[in-house]
Amino acid sequence: MVSMGQSDQAAITAILAGDTEAYGSLVKRHSAMLFRMAYRVTGNAADADDVVQEAFLRAYVKLASFESRSEFGTWVYRIAVHCALDKVSGRRGVEEASRIGEENDAEEASSQVADEAPGPERLALSGEIGAMQEMALRGLSPLERTAFVLRHHEEKSTEEIAAALAIAPNAAKQAVFRAVKKVRQRLEGFRRTQKRASRGEAQRVTV
């Protein structure tokens, strides 16, 4: 039985020799791993799916520059991290552009790409599973969010995060620190809201 690394390498050799179909085996083998990461970074399946496709397109186009001494899985994962970061950065770009209405067009000002998510207060009260975690991450910059998810959920080392984001290890570490601090502040904020709300409930009940 060939190891995964060996069969990846065989597929790459075939693709570079012109056998496009061989790329299918790489895509099928690594899609789930990329999707999981992309879902956590972007927070929704549609964006995650875009990221996965984009990553495989990029990887294909760059395949000639892939150095066979590294693992294809690691390599394409890093590409996908980059795409995911672009995705969350781009999303923020659109949201901001539509709010500011750059050129002051009536159309631009009115067509808001609305953030449909409920505000933190409502979420904290709703007690939806997972919603609080997602809200806590909304306060992070795209870089912080990506670094945090890679560290906390994807269980990557600082060095691996730095390599995927193409930044210095210390910058990756600082991004995680900032993220953890912000996440803690937001969680603390939700807890206070919840407490206030439950006190309010109690008073209403006793009146």
Partner: peptide, 28 residues
């Protein structure tokens, strides 16, 4: 931080890789 472990995650099913490939292949 343990609370953050509960961040929802969608797992791709077994057919997902094939679906990605079907869509990627035509764009290569």
């Amino acid at each position: 931080m343990g609370e953050m472990d509960g961040l929802p995650c969608a797992e791709a099913d077994a057919a997902y890789g094939t679906s990605v490939w079907n869509r990627v292949a035509s764009r290569l």
